[in-house]
Amino acid sequence: MFNHTNCDEKNENLDNLTLAKFLKYNCQTTHDSVDNLVMSVKPFDTPENYIRFLQLQAIFHKIVDDIYKNPNLNQKIEGLSELARYDSVIQDLQDLNTSEKAIKTPLPQLSGAEILGWLYCAEGSNVGAAFLFKDAQNKLGLGAEYGARHLAPHADGRGKHWRDFVAQLNTLSLTEEERTAALKGALDAFAFYKIIVREIFELK
């Protein structure tokens, strides 16, 4: 689901890598554990499971919605605000006659360059959502116009859109401290997602 955004804390000297490659290199096992956890709850096996998945997605995208609409970032990454998917998740929930779910876990308060790590994970998840979108279509009869809007590909195609996004992300001028903070944000995003998967699906 998160596909290429693999994150695991390492201390290698990767100063010569672009931001995207730096995050990718440092994000291996955590990404895999998130994907494995999500698929273990079989989100597309029943309508009830899919509703829980949507409620999970709503929480995550509510957190990153402000990042997509950040005025400063929108000056540096063209069309960023248009990529936000929180509203689409809410529409998907409404299609299925349900709504967001309150959780006990407090939402994280993001600051500084940490938001770049969260943004990287959020956009990367759209690339990895290709097979999720197919499952929503094939198993549940949902699609880009009903019930699975937020999983639909970008108009330019997932691959081209991701390359264009990464190219803009890599133009951001960051200090070493900010790159480290961005990595922390990515790691935190994965960790939080795992927490809310367990809460929404009532896993022990």
Score class of each variant (00 low, 15 high):
Lys104Asp: 13
Gly124Cys: 09
Asn6Cys: 06
Gly141Thr: 07
Val197Asp: 02
Arg52His: 13
His4Ile: 08
Leu93Tyr: 02
Leu19Lys: 00
Ala182Ser: 15
Thr5Lys: 03
Asp35Ser: 06
Met1Asn: 06
His4Gln: 11
Glu48Asn: 09
Lys76Phe: 05
Arg179Tyr: 08
Lys24Glu: 15
Ala155Leu: 12
Arg198Pro: 01
Gly128Lys: 03
Pro153Leu: 09
Gln75His: 08
Phe192Cys: 04
Gly147Trp: 02
Trp118Thr: 00
Thr105Leu: 14
His61Asn: 13
Glu48His: 08
Lys10Ile: 15
Asp45Arg: 15
Ala130Trp: 04
Thr46Asp: 15
Arg163His: 09
Gln137Phe: 08
Phe60Leu: 15
Ala182Thr: 02
Pro47Thr: 07
Ile103Lys: 03
Gln57Ser: 14
Phe2His: 08
Lys104Gln: 15
Phe44Ile: 10
Ala181Tyr: 05
Thr46His: 14
Glu202Lys: 15
Ser33Met: 11
Gln94His: 11
Leu172Thr: 01
Leu93Trp: 01
Gly117Ser: 09
Cys27Trp: 03
Ala152Thr: 10
Asp87Pro: 02
Glu100Gly: 07
Leu19Ile: 01
Ala102Tyr: 10
Arg158Met: 06
Asp15Pro: 02
Trp162Asp: 01
Asn74Lys: 08
Ala189Leu: 02
Asn126Thr: 11
Gly157Val: 06
Cys121Val: 15
Asn13Cys: 11
Gly124Ser: 09
Ala186Tyr: 00
Phe44Glu: 09
Lys134Ile: 12
Tyr193Ser: 00
Cys27Tyr: 04
